[in-house]
Design a protein around this nucleic acid. Sequence first.
DNA 1: ACACCAGATTTAAACGCTTAAATGCGGGCA
DNA 2: TGCCCGCATTTAAGCGTTTAAATCTGGTGT
Lengths: 343, 343
Amino acid sequence: MATLSEVARLAGVTTATVSNVLRNPGKVRPATVARVEAAIAQLGYRPNLMARALARGKSCMVALVLPSITNPFYPELVRVAERVARQRKYFLMVCNTDEDPEIGHAYLNQIAGTLADGVLVLHMGMATEVIEELRGRHAPIVLASEEFEDFSDGLPHVIVNFRRAGQVAAEHLLKLGHRKIGVIVGRGLEGMQHLRLEGFKHALLDAGVAFDESCVQCVLDTVPGGYQATSSLLSTHPDMTAIFATNDLLAFGASQALADRGIRIPGDISLIGITDIQLAQQMRPALTTVALHIQEIAKISINLLLDLIENPGHQPILVRAPEPELVVRASTSSLRRGHLHRG
Amino acid sequence: MATLSEVARLAGVTTATVSNVLRNPGKVRPATVARVEAAIAQLGYRPNLMARALARGKSCMVALVLPSITNPFYPELVRVAERVARQRKYFLMVCNTDEDPEIGHAYLNQIAGTLADGVLVLHMGMATEVIEELRGRHAPIVLASEEFEDFSDGLPHVIVNFRRAGQVAAEHLLKLGHRKIGVIVGRGLEGMQHLRLEGFKHALLDAGVAFDESCVQCVLDTVPGGYQATSSLLSTHPDMTAIFATNDLLAFGASQALADRGIRIPGDISLIGITDIQLAQQMRPALTTVALHIQEIAKISINLLLDLIENPGHQPILVRAPEPELVVRASTSSLRRGHLHRG
DNA sequence: ACACCAGATTTAAACGCTTAAATGCGGGCA
DNA sequence: TGCCCGCATTTAAGCGTTTAAATCTGGTGT
């Protein structure tokens, strides 16, 4: 692997000149530029990014720490974040913790500030411990997550209004006449989807509808989790007419459980999720859900992080993601008589 | 951010000693170790991985270049590869090209050998140009892909027997009595799934069944692609009794198209895919498919790459992934009379 | 013909760490 | 008491860049 100095020797100049050819071609005489470029081509030289990073004190890499790479929410977000980062001349390192706080801890500890210029932590479902780890880091760190009073100080923060999302979902179901609603809450490792549930409860309260805690199933944030939760709900509350899942993946699991029992959606039971991942519109029936605007979250977060890196203002910054928005598809319908007598 | 020399000064030793405490604690007197460790703790020192990489000529990072992060096949593979890499003390950089050869080119050009100690390229569906780019690189590179005579020289290579996968799928359908079979072939950017089709044709030939080229739809490797292909097939070949999709994502799209028309699976049309991503068993009806053993592919590939990095034997190595295996679920059934008269 | 100046190039230090080789130190042995 | 040796530590060079400051060059103005 050729180095700068080999190029310099071949071109009959010093490394400083070669470096300038690479970075400020304007400062070098055209004839020299040509000579150097010829040498570069001849040797197949490519700059060593490690050395460059060390010399410049900047690696142009940012890390994206997320709890689960197989949950499609994240890849959809990663894709956009990566594109934005690339446009701004940064590499994105994707770090998957698999919901293991140890791993998250290790990544943050090792990478932040020593390999990456900054870190974007997707907190959704991520363990609290990991977040705690972030305080006192010097490298720019941006958190995208639910609104947590405890965290909102100290760290730049992109806030997603999950509470509102739960509320929107509830309002939709209420408007359709549903009263007996099963709830499936994802918990990741640390029970992080409570706000969605709170928003949901809040809407019921506002409508004067009693909320039955026994209708809540709290499960792992996966398709099988949703399946299992639905099975439980069906056995304990056979009279429910709708299911609210705190995210689309759980809702997908729910739809399977219903399909396996020959229960029709939305004919027998309506189903609503949150997030609007691609799968939501691909399910059959297509899933009614509350869109969180994944792409916007990705853009806002990564841009905030890069802004902070390039222009370190010390004050933590809070940015709000777009408001959640109801997307009505085919999995919900008005309550009709007969519902209550199915079970 | 504290540096080695600050730690050294605080502990009253030189940087060499601190470095040794970090890397060969055996070589340092216990009392000194304690003193240095105290200094490290006091300053919150964490080694700069860039500097370390530069000094050692090894970054302990490997890149994983893949064509699409939103195709669930890849996240499932990434997850395993990352775990293995972590166990072997490497970081995994995930690089998504979004099927854009330019991006793949840029990643390989910039990262291989200058940031990462090695690169694992998942060729499935990746552009030929990108592969060409790999020749003549000095950094270890491993390719996981279909068997290509053109590529098998020159590069270490994990070979997945896609041809056999297509064959297995066809044999299954033939055994069930299907003769009019629609085919959906994914093409990524470069028409890379031909081998699966060839295997399929081969099996038909062996069974003495004529193959109708007009039954083949070639589409983008996505859910909507599968949907669209199925719609076309239904209009041109209403009498088909089965659909073979070259991967599960396409099959998922197909299942939607069928559902939207009230066509039952497998009652009216049988459906088979390839890969066995998680979605396959989560679909309803669950998808019959040919398992490629994603996790095994991931393990084999990443281990090969790391072996090559740690122990550079110059000769290219070919490794075979496990043979594809039929997984029968609910989306296929024997041909029954009445099929031919539906359309 | 001279001093001056801008532009082009070089010098040399720095980035934070590693590592082979050199040094210093104290104890065991004769 | 003096020598040798092994252990612990330091020295110093090197990894491949960048970059501010220094140097050199030739052309300009007078």
